[in-house]
Nucleic acid binder design. Structure first.
Lengths: 340, 1321
DNA sequence: CCGGTACCTACTGATATAAGTAATAGACAATAT
DNA sequence: GTATTGTCTACCGACAATATCAGTAGGTACTGG
């Protein structure tokens, strides 16, 4: 059976969007799925399960379902205005609507471990999980934090990523996509793009037609050849566009604690040559690294030009440093005044 | 309840009452005739107008001196200019002191270009010229004459010399060494050139030296004695009369240049000492009575016998006087051995011996002896105070050196381990580096071309040297190094950083400390300069010198207007810190993670890095772990800013806005938070002499002499040394143990939990450490002041509340600090005193809600406990520890116990301050303002048999409400109804005065309820419910108070949303909404102008050597923060009243000879004087509230914000709206463009200008002019027309700013409280 | 000799940073449509 | 000119984000008329 797909006109009546943006043109959705070639990965639809986070108006969900007919399709949504509509629409359908906030980690534990409404097969790390896909919309720039956390979950292999290398299709603000996809040497290079590089292969599938396109590195655009979405297909576009990312987790063997410390601190001084920037890693770091690193070119590079490989190299040196600082004391606790 | 008296009828009553009391008063109109403006406030001023309000409010009403008191554009311009001037000044000063005369001259030229500054330019030029002369750049008289004429005629033609310039010329002539004729002629010429008379030239004691005056009087005979300023006259006269026949000529070994002379040998010295006879009055009592002492006075440390007496003659006098007193043998010995040299006996910061002056003083029997003793002590302390403020950094250095050398001499293996040894090494490594840097700077500053080609980096470096170079050579490099090291150690674990500090704070702190050192040094140096020829050493004469010096310092301090800009401080600080980072190393030992072998190494002790907090970067300076351990155990008293310790002598009395407090450190009367606005008002009022009552009160607070309670100190010290936690002091903690990280693949929620827990642990750890560290400071300062007589200089916060200037250890501190402090002066208890002492004890135990008799009984019932506690505090059950305020309770126990040892306890000489606290002082003032009887009763304004307990009463009311609700079947009420205790509501009732919001109160109550209910969500829900009831109950009980509170809030809101007519278009940048610039300003009853400093912050990044730091720019013109203005005004107004009350009471008590101290709403004095103080403070409260302060406030507002307009919304369909639309379209036609709000305002401004014109014709035009504002003035019921909601049907219009009606006043008569026993108790 | 322009530097303002958003609910201000 | 989104949230003492880059203003050197 096919689910009804609501039109843009119908959906544009929705008042509260909670700061999220959705592509609302079925044809473009189809074009995107054409491009993604998900069929190649999820060959056996009888064991294909999909978790759709913040589906909102759920136009994409319906199209996806109609196209792939997965064995199970779960929507997780917490926002009242969307929920009432979803419950009404899918009460008698193969789609499961879960009234939980995707923000809460406990929602997933409930869904998968407690209530067992969704059973996911754990697969090995040598391939992309071919029975489970995560779709989500995190287009509210205010929730960028959640996006970044999901990324770090990939590195940790926890959350949904404990089931193997689970592909994710995420709609995100274009500004976030720019940051995530920045290559070494880019002006936007930052810790999150190193995270992306370390744990994933992320593709830019589609993006809305805004000025922000220019902010991507040319190589990103040429390599991904994303579908450009017209302004009119996305509700409330303003000047801030959205992008669709295809995230393919990769396997890694990184000493995460040290790696995080090193990347985080070095990228604060992202324009400072490494030889100077290194000193901020701790008491006497400059002297230590200077002796260890023979490659003078590396020392003259600034952190924003480093590849993840180079960060890993530095991390390794750092880990071997006898006088390295306590990386777990790396926080400030802001003054809190509680008399009474 | 029926409230028969409205506010206006009440006012009539008040005025009539005044009529009776102030007979012959002329200006007494019936209340109904009172119109707005100050005229009516003159009438309202009444008795308490004399306090300062009247004069002050008139002064502060005249516009022009306040930056916000002008149009926006000119405000911005003037602020920018004052910022420039301030920067230039501080640079000029720095250059002059560093002798970069060329650079200084260039700066002078820049200053000359700042037009608004032109009238004051001559001061700057004089400063330059004086320095030019002082530093010997003027080679002859003619030379300087030439310079002056070129400068003033060619370089600065618009600038004219003044009498100070002439004084400089005269000084130069006198020191030129040219022939007497030449000098004489020149002087004649200069004197003839005077602008305001010879006396005016002579008044510059900061230029002319004592010998100058002498020469002018004697050698040249060109001035008369009366032309010499009074402060130095006695010096000069003495010199003249005593002349060369004086045999007592001794070269003073001056303390800051003491290296020049070797002290005289001990033997001659004692002979000299012998030759000075003690006062004869004392001699007579001398022989009989040294047995009268009860106990032997222990010296603090016995040792140092090897020290030979090398004190100066003046101090020998002191010693001699002391020896002339009735002392026991031990005391005599101590004094005889004591090293009366001020700068070697700063305080017992070290383990050196010293005398317990307090013990000596206390053991004296007669008043005559005591006063003689104090005179000597004060004199000694004068010297010590100076040494303390100026030499303490050297002392720290000496100690490091000493430790280092000692360790080396002993061949100590663990030498590297000792902290001071390390510090000494760092210091020695840093010094050459700094000296080199100073050299580079002086090359750059003197404009010398570089000797070789510089790399681009070096060029850049030299550029930045231009910024800080001038400041770097001001203070002795050695001192700067010491300061840097001390500051960084002091800041350990501050700012939430675990093993380090925030860089921003560090750089500023170092910069500030260096500046402070510079100020002190500068004062000392110039003082030496002026007094260097004064070397006659008679006892009498020294006093004159002292007096002259003091007044000289005041002049100097008042004159100095320069502070280093924050950015400059940061830059200097960063330079110093980077140098220290570079050289300071620690030795390390660690395990190589790969080879698992032990490795040794060396690493910087400090490391600069960053940490993130909520995504924001934070620059941090980490201190190496290995140091942290040492710092924990160290006594860091040396790093307390020596300039800010309690004073050994009476503080300099407050005489003007910037003169008072310490002797070598400038402090401002008001701690304004970068608010030039309030400063402007303050200066105006201060110069007009309108706030003398404030000074008076403040000086009383400063003159209260304190000493450390040795018995309590000993107990504390014992507890401290055990390292265990005790009462509020946390124990020593070894190291921070964080929880191990969970495995990466565990659920994110687990990670989160772990992080939270660790944060909590770290938080707990650092808060414990900071409390322990703070306690350490307190104890160490107390130790240093054991047996000393000391004072706390005070200043005010922006609302007028008084605080001691010295941090860490003062009577505003916690129970521990308070327990350590007693009055220096003792007073016999007497019958009343004994009773009050008991009441005090009872209060400290929290038993303060009962009638006085019961409290006395309580104490008496516990006399056995008291005895046990006092005699062996740390043994037994430690009864005193159960008190609310245990340390103070212990102190009181000790006194009571001692008293009862006497045959008649009333004979006991008591030093313990006894407190009288207002019950909910804020509410007391509210109740007095609102006149509601029920509220007044609850806070004990109304006489009663027993004290009322507001919190219990509110709890009762809430309980009643809950019962009622429960009866109606409300479940939540049912659950809560028997759980309402005093404690649940206390915080909310208290904070209610501060305007706590519903949300805030909910959390407070939830905190209490969480003790009762386990389920957090449930208790949160209940607390939401309960809060509503508590709010309602408080509102009901203090109905009048709340009306006032609301009224104040509404006024503040309207004021901060009002628009001056002379705003300009720039402030309309965002559409039709201008930036609101007016903050709430009022005058306290004492005449202190208060300006709420809440404006939008504008901070900027400043580049320093280490990183950029984020610093607020005090000279930016920012719109007000209306929210904070509104929320802050009610509490601030009330606090300005309680501050007034306190200062009035202080002044009154001071006049009656009482010792007085206060913690805002808690007033302290000797037990025997409590009754007297009580009557004073009641009288002052009545005096304060006799006038309708609210009405007076409104009048002041009406006057100050006259002609301001505000934005209102009315219905578009109304007649008025149509009229306004018509005027607007007219205006648009005339302008040829759509009229904006700015245009309307301009139009209205034009109208008011016309109306206020002198020309009757213009006035007529003004009257006929119709503006969008003028039409609203015709409408009476404007408020009714206003619409709340915005919508298509509303119209935004301008209306004159109007304040709401004053709420009606209840009929409580403040006179009644005269008989209220529990008003303060 | 003058003005114009290219080029450089200094300064200002904007933006990103990390990565649970601690609890809660209602007013008020700011921003975008 | 309105609708939505964002920001607070008890006063004072009190104590603070920073690196980098784009854009612009201002100054200087050079060149052409």
């Amino acid at each position: 059976m096919s689910l009804p797909v609501r039109s843009l006109k119908e959906l544009s009546k929705i008042k509260h969007w909670y700061g999220f943006k959705y592509l609302l043109n079925p044809e473009v959705h189809q074009a995107i799925f054409d491009k993604l070639r998900l069929e190649d990965t999820y060959r056996d639809t009888t064991k294909f399960k999909v978790l759709d986070l913040y589906p909102g108006p759920s136009q994409q969900s319906a199209i996806f379902y109609n196209r792939f007919k997965p064995q199970q399709y779960v929507l997780m949504e917490s926002r009242a205005d969307f929920l009432t509509q979803l419950k009404k629409e899918y009460s008698n359908s193969p789609i499961d609507v879960i009234e939980k906030d995707p923000y809460d980690w406990s929602s997933y534990v409930d869904l998968i471990d407690q209530s067992k409404k969704l059973q996911v097969e754990k697969q090995s790390l040598d391939h992309i999980n071919d029975s489970f896909l995560t779709i989500g919309n995190l287009t509210n720039p205010a929730h960028e934090g959640l996006l970044m956390q999901w990324y770090s979950c990939i590195g940790n292999r926890n959350w949904l990523q404990r089931f193997g290398r689970v592909k994710m299709l995420l709609w995100v603000p274009t500004s976030s996509a720019v940051k995530l996809l920045a290559r070494p040497g880019s002006i936007s290079r930052s810790k999150c793009s190193v995270v992306r590089e370390a744990f994933t292969e992320t593709n830019l599938v589609a993006l809305s037609d805004t000025e922000e396109v220019k902010l991507f590195d040319d190589s990103v655009i040429t390599a991904n050849n994303p579908i450009i979405i017209s302004d009119t297909d996305i509700w409330q576009i303003r000047d801030k566009g959205i992008s669709l990312l295809e995230i393919n987790p990769t396997a890694h063997h990184i000493d995460l604690d040290n790696w995080e410390y090193v990347t985080k601190h070095l990228l604060i001084l992202k324009g400072t040559p490494l030889i100077d920037a290194l000193e901020s890693l701790g008491h006497g770091a400059k002297d230590y690294f200077k002796d260890k690193i023979t490659n003078q070119d590396l020392l003259n590079k600034s952190p924003n030009k480093l590849t993840n490989e180079e960060f890993i190299y530095l991390t390794d040196l750092f880990a071997k440093w006898p006088f390295k600082p306590d990386i777990f004391m790396d926080f400030v606790d802001i003054y809190q005044d509680d008399s009474f | 309840m029926l409230r028969p008296f409205t506010r206006s009828t009440c006012r009539v009553a008040a005025i009539q009452r005044r009529f009776i009391s102030s007979k012959g008063s002329k200006l007494l109109k019936p209340a109904t005739e009172l119109h707005t403006s100050l005229a009516s406030n003159q009438a309202l001023a009444g008795v308490n107008g004399g306090l300062g309000f009247l004069k002050s409010s008139q002064v502060s009403m005249s516009p022009g001196f306040d930056p916000y008191d002008m149009s926006h554009a000119s405000a911005v311009k003037s602020m920018t200019q004052s910022r420039d001037v301030m920067q230039l000044w501080s640079l000029l000063e720095a250059c002059l002191y560093s002798k970069y005369m060329n650079r200084a001259f260039a700066i002078l030229q820049s200053l000359y270009m700042v037009s608004s500054h032109r009238p004051y330019f001559i001061d700057d030029y004089n400063m330059y010229l004086a320095s030019y002369v002082q530093n010997g750049f003027a080679h002859s008289i003619a030379d300087l004459d030439r310079k002056l004429s070129t400068d003033l005629q060619e370089k600065f033609p618009a600038c004219e010399y003044d009498d100070k310039t002439l004084a400089i010329m005269i000084h130069n002539a006198l020191r030129s060494g040219e022939s007497s004729d030449t000098v004489g002629n020149s002087i004649h010429t200069y004197l003839r050139m005077n602008m305001k008379g010879v006396k005016s030239i002579m008044s510059h004691v900061d230029i002319l030296t004592v010998s100058d005056y002498k020469a002018l009087l004697e050698e040249f005979d060109v001035i008369k004695v009366y032309e010499v300023p009074e402060t130095v006259r006695s010096l000069v006269e003495k010199e003249v009369t005593q002349g060369a026949t004086d045999t007592e000529l001794v070269v003073e070994s001056d303390h800051s240049i003491s290296t020049e002379q070797e002290p005289t040998s001990a033997s001659t010295e004692s002979q000299l000492a012998e030759s000075i006879k003690p006062r004869s009055a004392l001699e007579s009592t001398n022989s009989e009575s040294w047995l009268s002492l009860d106990e032997t006075v222990k010296p603090l440390e016995k040792d140092a016998a090897k020290l030979t007496a090398v004190d100066t003659l003046g101090m020998r006098v002191v010693r001699h006087t002391l020896l002339g007193l009735n002392l026991n043998e031990q005391q005599r010995q101590n004094i005889a051995q004591f090293h009366f040299k001020a700068d070697e006996n700063l305080l017992n910061l070290d383990q050196k011996k010293s005398i317990d002056f307090f013990e000596v003083y206390r053991s004296l029997k007669s008043d005559a002896e005591r006063s003689e003793f104090e005179k000597s002590l004060d004199q000694f302390n004068q010297e010590r105070q100076r040494a303390l403020e100026s030499r303490a950094t050297d002392a720290a250095k000496e100690r490091w050196k000493h430790d280092f050398e000692e360790a080396r001499a002993r061949g100590d293996i663990s030498i590297e381990k000792r902290l001071n040894v390390k510090l000494w090494k760092w210091y020695n490594a840093m010094l050459p580096l700094l000296k080199e840097e100073v050299k580079f700077c002086s090359e750059v500053m003197s404009g010398k071309p570089p000797s070789r080609r510089l790399s681009s980096g070096e060029i850049k470096q030299n550029k930045t040297r231009q910024d800080y170079g001038a400041y770097l050579s001001l203070v002795d490099p050695e001192k700067m190094c010491v300061i840097t090291i001390l500051e960084l150690l002091k800041l350990n674990s501050t700012g939430g950083v675990i093993e380090g500090m925030r860089t921003a704070r560090a750089v500023i702190a170092v910069g500030k400390a260096i500046e402070m050192e510079f100020r002190s040094e500068q004062l000392l140096k110039s003082e030496l300069q002026i007094f260097k020829d004064v070397n006659r050493k008679s006892h009498e004469f020294k006093k004159y010198v002292q007096r002259a010096k003091n007044s000289f310092r005041s002049i100097k301090i008042e004159e100095s207007k320069v502070v280093w800009p924050q950015a400059a401080r940061a830059k200097i600080g960063s330079i110093m810190i980077s140098m220290l980072i570079h050289v300071a190393k620690v030795d390390l030992e660690g395990i190589d993670p790969v080879t698992k072998q032990k490795v040794h190494g060396e690493a910087p002790a400090f490391s600069h890095g960053y940490q993130y907090h909520n995504g924001s970067k934070l620059g941090v300076l980490k201190i190496h772990r290995s140091l942290i351990h040492q710092l924990n155990g160290e006594r860091l008293v040396a790093s307390v800013q020596p300039q800010l310790l309690p004073m050994l002598v009476k503080p300099r009395p407050w005489k003007s806005w910037n003169s008072g407090g310490y002797y070598y450190t400038q402090s401002s009367l008001i701690r304004s938070k970068d608010s030039p606005e309030q400063m402007a008002y303050l200066k105006a009022v201060s110069n007009a002499g309108a706030i003398d009552t404030v000074y008076q009160g403040l000086n009383v607070l400063g003159e209260t002499a304190w000493t450390v309670n040795r018995r309590v100190f000993d107990v504390m010290s014992e507890v401290w040394n055990s390292g265990k936690d005790f009462l509020e002091i946390p124990g020593i903690q070894e190291k921070l143990d964080l929880l191990p990280a969970p495995p990466r693949e565990s659920d994110p929620s687990v990670h989160r939990e772990w992080k939270l827990k660790n944060k909590e642990i770290a938080n707990k750890f650092s808060s414990n450490r900071s409390v322990r560290c703070d306690s350490n400071y307190k104890l160490e300062i107390a130790r240093a002041f054991l047996g000393e007589k000391f004072y706390f200089p005070h200043n005010l916060d922006f609302r007028g509340r008084a605080y001691p200037l010295s941090p860490h250890f003062n009577h505003l501190g916690n129970d521990m600090s308070r327990g350590l402090l007693i009055f220096w002066k003792g007073k016999r208890l007497g019958p009343r005193g004994l009773k009050w002492l008991k009441v005090h004890l009872s209060n400290l135990f929290g038993f303060d809600k009962a009638p006085l008799a019961d409290r006395i009984a309580y104490a008496e019932a516990h006399l056995k406990d008291v005895k046990r506690s006092a005699e062996d505090p740390l043994a037994g059950d430690g009864w005193w520890m159960k008190a609310d305020k245990p340390w103070q309770a212990l102190a009181t126990c000790i006194e009571i116990n001692e008293a009862y040892k006497l045959p008649n306890p009333e004979d006991f000489i008591s030093h313990q301050p006894v407190h009288q606290d207002g019950t909910c002082n804020g509410l007391q003032h509210y109740a007095a303002l609102g006149g509601d009887i029920e509220g007044a009763t609850q806070v004990n304004l109304v006489p009663n048999d027993r004290p009322q307990d507001v919190y219990a009463h509110v709890a009762k009311l809430v309980q009643a409400r809950l019962e009622a609700a429960a009866a109606k079947g409300d479940e939540q009420a049912e659950t809560l109804k028997d759980k309402i205790t005093r404690k649940v509501v206390k915080q909310t009732v208290m904070t209610n005065v501060y305007g706590v919001t519903y949300v805030g109160a909910t959390f407070q109550i939830e905190k209490q309820l969480s003790h009762i209910f386990d389920d957090r969500t449930y208790s949160l829900e209940l607390s939401k419910y309960l809060t509503k009831h508590v709010f309602a109950a408080v509102r009901e009980l203090f109905h009048g108070a709340h009306l006032i509170q609301d009224w104040l809030g509404e006024c503040a809101k309207r004021i901060s949303k009002s628009i001056r007519l002379d705003v300009d278009e720039k402030s309309f940048k965002n559409g039709n909404k201008p930036d609101f610039m007016s903050s709430v300003i009022w005058t306290t009853p004492l005449g202190l102008p208060i300006v709420q400093p809440y404006r939008e912050a504008s901070k900027k990044q400043v580049t320093t050597n280490l990183q950029t730091v984020f610093i607020s720019d005090p000279f930016s013109v920012n719109p007000v923060n209306a929210r904070r203005q509104k929320a802050g005004f009610p509490p601030n107004f009330i606090h300005s009243l309680d501050a007034s009350h306190m200062l009035l009471s202080a002044a009154a008590c001071g006049e009656e000879g009482l010792d007085f101290a206060s913690v805002h709403d808690s007033y302290w004095t000797h037990a025997c004087d409590v009754d007297q103080m009580n009557s004073c403070l009641r009288e002052q409260f009545i005096k304060l509230h006799e006038v309708d302060l609210i009405e007076r406030l409104k009048n002041e507002f009406d006057e100050r914000y006259k002609n301001y307009v505000q934005i209102a919304k009315i219905d578009k369909q109304s007649e008025l709206a149509k009229k306004i639309i018509a005027i607007r379209s007219n205006l648009s036609v005339k302008l040829g463009k759509p009229a904006t709000l700015a245009d309307e305002i301009y139009m209205e401004k034009r109208r008011t200008q016309l109306l206020e014109s002198e020309d009757p014709e213009e006035q007529e035009i003004g009257r006929n002019m119709e503006t969008t504002v003028s039409v609203t003035e015709l409408i009476d019921n404007l408020e009714e027309l206003e619409v709340k909601k915005t919508g298509t049907t509303t119209l935004m219009i301008l209306v004159p700013m109007r304040l709401p009606q004053i709420p009606p006043k209840g009929n409580f008569d403040v006179q009644d409280l005269r008989n209220s026993k529990y008003f303060f108790s």
